[in-house]
Nucleic acid binder design. Structure first.
Lengths: 322, 322
DNA sequence: CTGAAAGCGCTAACAG
DNA sequence: CTGTTAGCGCTTTCAG
């Protein structure tokens, strides 16, 4: 294993110079001559130097690595975020402290650990209870003390932690894609199944007119039981694949064929989408990219760079139901 | 943060004694008086001592942290393993190097990183290509050099890396549960849909007699199209939920009602299971436990303890289809 | 059985 | 701009 000392001896320099040259902190990095730094960096590459993170952490008095909190795995999306985060961390040589759960307990334990351990930074999924003063307050204080944080897929437009950077999916655009697709198909009547959200507003914008919003299976059933469509298909944009699956179930129970008499578009491209009797047309979100970009953003923040929010565009996956 | 020195001062002892008392290495542990050790351990708990893993790693000359390789996330199972691994690592204060993928490239990059970094240990999912000499050989060499490794859910009965500990699901028992359930239901005829495997053999044992095995949707369709069951339901044990979903689709296309005219049991309790028009009766594997136990096993191995394979028992989740 | 001391590789003051 | 120095918390000799 190559150490700083090896490089220093090789070049006849002091260890500290090498350390400074190889550290990303821009403030200190000015303190090394450009030529020297270049020589050092070249030698580091040639000798396959990799920083001993344990030693760096020890010296810095804080544990190195990033704390990651993801919601409980209800579908494969979490796995995909984890994949992105894992790969990003690997690239940056950053160890992970990974916590997955969807309860306040898990989250507050995570916060406790992170504060206690003062990791290099935090990546946190934006769960609803982040708004609770006790938990959100911890995060806020973490950022105030100079902690670096990335929030994943923040749906809460009215909730923002100062200093935190958001990385997520452009949900409004996802809804737009669904609405626009139905407009192209010339669907005579469109319904949205799910709560008021960016997705819903996107659907309305894409379709071109305000779309009635349904919140319960009963309301969906009532629409399907209507007999006034004149043979034209009912169209539904759902806020998730599982809601779209619910629509499909209700349709099948009534002998209506998905993709012909009832059109539906899901959201997420989860495993549900492909495993339905009529595989769902849906909106895919690249959660792998979300994870990857989150680590990238965090590592830039730690290096002292200015980082902007990242919004990733979803895409329409066309299958059998619309 | 409590350090060894804090404890030493509190008790009027030397740091080295405290270190020895708190280290799990059995050889050295003899060198502390039993009473002293008890006092030290109590004080450590009282003062909420947590070992600084970075310092320990530095001193021991190896990078701390465990390398984890999981397959690409096709369903929520990977997320659940990740959850278990994350929580286990958090408890042990072990950083993670997480790699998720299902290609040789990702895996070999993972191996390269891990060897280079000499992590505390490795947790690897047993992918088919582990059998390839190049990749399996790397793992084998890693273990030979004293590296600690845990293999997850090893399906390859004829492939075993010496020194590695297996943590996984008792698949044969999972099959047994399905077979036994059909026997209780007095299903007249049972088919297995999937490849020859522990699951299949378990199904046969649970049902009490050898069960015909089908490998393609066409074969399933042929069974469903038979007209000789005398009104009794066909029963299927599938090797996965998605295969069970396939059976359900074929049944619905023929106007047969799942749970009445066609019985089916899936495997995995994935999201597919609950989102089918007729939610699947299935076998649930506790992948969270798998992840948790894997870290536990690895950390024991690192501490020099003797560790045995861990087999976790799956359970039957009864829903609408059997 | 316990204590003193050295040093893992790195960073950050400070002095030159 | 570069070098010197002093540790971070822990483990491991080696003396007592």
């Amino acid at each position: 294993m190559t150490t700083l000392r090896d490089i220093a001896e090789e070049l006849g320099l002091a260890v500290s110079v090498v350390s400074r040259a190889l550290s990303p902190d821009p403030a200190k990095s000015a303190a090394v001559a450009v030529a020297t730094r270049r020589r050092i960096q070249e030698t580091a590459v040639r000798m396959q130097y990799r920083k001993n993170t344990a030693a760096a952490a020890l010296r810095k008095g804080r544990n190195i690595g990033i704390g990651v909190w993801l919601p409980e795995a209800r579908d494969r999306l979490v796995g995909l975020i984890a994949k992105g985060v894992g790969e990003g961390a690997m690239r940056e040589n950053l160890p992970l402290f990974l916590s997955i759960g969807y309860t306040e307990d898990v989250f507050s334990e995570f916060i406790r650990m992170s504060s206690h351990y003062a990791h290099s930074g935090l990546i946190s999924y934006a769960a609803p209870f982040i708004r609770f003063p006790e938990l959100g307050g911890e995060l806020r204080r973490y950022c105030e003390r100079g902690g670096k944080m990335v929030m994943l897929s923040c749906y809460f437009e009215d909730f923002q932690i100062p200093g935190a950077v958001n990385v997520g999916i452009d949900d409004e655009y996802g809804g737009f894609l669904a609405g626009a697709h139905f407009r192209e198909l010339a669907a005579p009547e469109l319904f949205f199944f799910g709560v008021e959200s960016k997705r819903y507003r996107g659907v309305c914008r894409g379709f071109g007119t305000p779309v009635p919003r349904l919140e319960s299976p009963e309301q969906v059933a009532a629409v399907l039981d209507r007999n006034d469509s004149g043979g034209k298909p009912f169209a539904f944009a759902a806020a998730s694949d599982s809601l779209a699956a619910e629509i499909q179930r209700l349709a099948l129970q009534r002998g209506l064929t998905p993709g012909r008499e009832v059109l539906m578009i899901g959201y997420n491209d989860s495993e549900i989408a492909t495993s339905q009797p009529w595989p769902l047309t849906t909106i895919r979100q690249d959660m792998y990219q979300v994870g990857l970009q989150a680590v990238g953003a965090l590592s830039s923040m730690v290096a002292g760079e200015e980082v902007k929010d990242v919004l990733i565009k979803p895409e329409l996956i066309r299958r059998t139901t619309a």
